[in-house]
């Protein structure tokens, strides 16, 4: 969990990426350079169109950048999606075990691990349910368990809380911090709420839109565990919000 800037998990240097489909063709990332320390929790914040999701896809190698270099010091990436992206034809248990199945882990072993991960996110009882029968919060927990099952060294989360109600999201944030502490993986999270980002992250990367680019990054100067109702917390949120406002006005 101790982040070590000398041993970055991901380094991007002057990366340009183009987003192209039938409707549009735009520079989604312009000249993006960043370094994510191994074991750190980094949030990416920015308006829509800032290329946050594109950044995640480029880091994971799902999308080829147009130019620039990427150093990936991770071997087992996993991802949690805003829309959960669970396989509807598989039970919660089989969804969690999917990555292990692809790695060739024998059935008995992968069921054991998947059940363990489901227990970790508090969903052992719904192991045999299909995603359609689960609530949004439950689905996102299954999504998290699916990611944890492959013991990732980099966990990418694309707005994992934005489809959840506040109470569910809060519970999941608490669990996520617990998980991060015990696993010690690097977490890169797209977030759109500043307080969420301040509560969770070591640092925040602020992105701007059209073209998508990194505008600035800030370290969060609060000791852990953080109390999201303390005056210090509110001061930090205000400070970051002020910085962001200052940038977006220029």
């Amino acid at each position: 969990m101790q982040s070590d800037p000398a041993r970055p998990a991901v380094v991007l240097s002057r990366v340009n990426a183009r987003f192209a489909d039938q409707k549009r063709n735009a520079l989604a990332l312009k000249d993006v350079s960043l370094s994510i320390p191994a074991g750190s929790f980094v949030s990416v914040v920015g308006p829509s169109g800032a290329g946050k999701s594109t950044l995640m896809r480029v880091v994971l190698g799902l999308m080829r950048p147009e130019s620039g270099t990427i150093v990936r010091n991770f071997s087992k990436p996993a991802m949690v999606f805003q829309n959960y992206a669970l396989f509807p034809w598989l039970t919660a248990l089989d969804n969690v075990a999917f990555g292990l199945r692809m790695q060739g882990v024998p059935r008995q072993e992968r069921v054991r691990i998947a059940l363990e991960k489901l227990r970790e996110v508090g969903l052992e009882s719904i192991a045999r349910h299909y995603p359609a029968a689960l609530s949004g919060g439950q689905r996102q927990r299954v999504g998290l368990a699916r990611a944890l099952a492959i013991s990732p060294d980099l966990l990418i989360m694309d707005e994992p809380f934005s489809n959840l109600d506040t109470i569910t999201a809060e519970a999941l944030r608490t669990d996520l911090l617990k998980i991060w502490r015990s696993y010690g993986m690097t977490i890169l999270m797209v977030n759109h709420l500043i307080p969420d980002a301040v509560e969770l992250s070591d640092s925040i990367i602020l992105m701007g839109a059209h073209p998508g680019r990194i505008v600035n990054s800030f370290d969060i100067g609060l000791p852990r565990p953080r109390d999201p109702r303390s005056p210090q917390f509110f001061r930090e949120v205000d400070r970051i919000t002020g910085l962001i406002r200052g940038i977006s006005q220029t």
Binding site: L60, P77, A78, M79, F81, A85, F98, G99, R101, R146
Partner: peptide, 11 residues
């Protein structure tokens, strides 16, 4: 997202 999930988790 479903395509990406399949790719990331090894399909």
């Amino acid at each position: 997202d479903l395509n990406d999930a399949a790719t990331i988790f090894g399909a």
